[in-house]
Amino acid sequence: MKTSVARKILMALSGFFLLLFLLQHLTINSLSVVSEDVFNNVSHFMGTNWIVQFLLQPVLLFGVIFHLVMGLYLDIQNQRARNIKYAQNNPGTNSSWMSRNMKITGIMILLFLGLHFADFWIPELNTKFIEGDMSGMKESGFGLRYFEELQHKFTEVWRVAIYVLAFVFLSLHLLHGFQSAFQSVGFNHNKYTPWIKKLGNLYAIVVPLGFIIIAIYHYTTQL
């Protein structure tokens, strides 16, 4: 934690962790397209299993907070390192927009997380821990509630639009971030790095697109 290199390595490790989490999240979301029952059962398991709830969930929360606090901290240091700006700057000739704007795309993701938590996580905490209803059942008492709750969120077009936009920002974040994290932990090899970059582009497009398709699917099936 003491030096720039150590902080960058930790930044990359938290990034890797989030990349893995995102795959898991996408897998479960895809189940909602495949089968209502399977989605309900897996959601109920994730929402009530104590290892997931009291071990994995706090670790995830810590990972997200660590990543964003460290990212913003590094950015403040970086601003300070160039106290006088150039009168004319031509950064487009030597680097990509994505690589220069990780803070912007990151903050967009953070804003989205606010909405996303308000949509799902906070109501979930409320149902389970304030109202004390751990059953996962609908109020009617017939069947699990998760799929229905998911559907109810994707009825307004503005919300779907925000979700889609957020995943575009996530895509931009990862188009740089995926391969950058490998470089940060010291992995750069002429044989493998070109493939890591290709894999990174694939991940950064396919995963956010997956989330987008699922959101639009639920919106259109309810029209």
Partner: peptide, 25 residues
């Protein structure tokens, strides 16, 4: 007081001696 690396790669492009990012890794 130098800043942190964000792996933008601008240095490698502008370096007159073509020093590679491989060195940073």
């Amino acid at each position: 007081g130098f800043g942190n690396c964000s792996n933008t790669g601008a240095c490698e492009v502008e370096c007159p001696k073509g020093i590679s990012l491989e060195n940073i890794a």
